Simulated assay, not measured.
Amino acid sequence: MAQSPEAPAGIARPPQQGRSRASFERMMTAAEALLIERGSDGFALNDVSRVGKVSIGSIYNRFSSKDELIQAVHARVMDRLCADQTRIVMRARSRSRSPVSLIRAIVDEMGEFLASHAQVMRPMMLRAAFDLVVQDRGRIAHDEMATMVATEVLAHREAIAHPDPDHAVEAVIRISYAAFARELGFGMAEAPQGGTDWKRLKADMGDMAARFLFSAPPADD
């Protein structure tokens, strides 16, 4: 089972006492909501204080800067995402009766996983462009998901028609993820407005993945 990366040094742990913990939770919830609404550059600690109904002193008792607070929010978000991404394979497995239906289901579940977390992943991926802590944690989590999916599909190695199953499975994961991420606007300041039929995109990517893996390639001219 994939595990979320350990929090970087300096990331505050939740306090144990009830009142302090409640204040901390309001602080973190407010910071995440502001991150989704405005992006990492669009709010200040005073906004977290106002929205979370916590004093600015309480924030500085836990975090030395807004950057450190955002990294702590990212750590919490990644805990949720890493827990949820372990269910991609379980849900796909429950929907499939063959290797072909398995890869179609995995691609579909991968798309749904990304869509369900798109609001918070979008600003975090923008942040990752210049924040190495966020970048490293995101990369580790992505690699864990890719390894988990590849292991499941390669358990059916004998059914894969592609001459290089390991490469083919890696390519399916990479290309499917990239297509979904682009459609969801990851790395963009704002979500894209309309355009592609999301259900059709998932079906098309699943069909292409199945054909790439399980249809024999044509002979070279």
Rank of each mutant, 00 (worst) to 15 (best):
A159N: 09
Q3S: 14
A105D: 08
L114H: 06
R127V: 01
A83W: 00
E112G: 12
D131Q: 04
E109F: 01
R127L: 13
C82T: 14
F130G: 10
A209Y: 02
E170M: 12
A161S: 15
P217T: 02
M148T: 14
H162Q: 13
M28P: 04
D84I: 00
V120D: 03
A141V: 09
G57F: 05
D79V: 06
D79N: 10
L34V: 03
N46A: 15
M148S: 14
M27L: 15
M90K: 14
G206M: 07
A129R: 14
A178I: 02
H142S: 13
A33M: 10
R50Y: 01
D204F: 03
D197F: 04
R62W: 10
M148V: 07
V51F: 05
P163W: 08
V100Y: 02
V77C: 05
I11E: 06
M205V: 14
A171C: 10
M125H: 06
D221C: 05
M28N: 04
F214P: 09
S215C: 12
C82L: 02
F214G: 10
S20D: 10
R174E: 12
A30E: 06
A115I: 00
A210K: 02
Y177D: 13
V77G: 02
Q3L: 14
F113P: 02
M90G: 01
S101A: 15
D84P: 01
D197S: 08
V107Y: 04
R50E: 11
L34D: 07
V77W: 01
R211K: 13
S116T: 09
R62T: 06
R21I: 01
R127Q: 04
D197R: 07
M110C: 09
S101W: 08
L154T: 05
D131G: 05
M110T: 07
W198N: 05
T147E: 12
E25S: 11
H162Y: 08
Q135P: 00
H117S: 11
D207P: 00
L213Y: 04
E190P: 00
R139M: 13
R211E: 13
I56G: 13
A22C: 01
P163V: 08
R80E: 08
R127G: 02
M124R: 05
A128N: 01
N61D: 13
I106L: 15
L201T: 06
G194D: 11
K202T: 07
A129F: 02
R97T: 15
G195D: 06
R19G: 03
L81C: 10
M124V: 03
L126N: 15
A2R: 14
G206F: 03
Q16S: 14
S40T: 06
M121V: 12
A30F: 04
R19A: 15
S4D: 00
L154H: 06
S64I: 10
A44V: 09
R157F: 03
D221W: 09
A75K: 05
E170V: 03
F113Y: 08
S4I: 00
G185V: 06
R122H: 05
M148G: 03
A9V: 11
L132V: 10
A105Q: 09
I173T: 03
S23M: 10
V48H: 02
V48K: 04
M208C: 10
R76D: 10
V100L: 13
D164N: 15
L184A: 08
R93E: 15
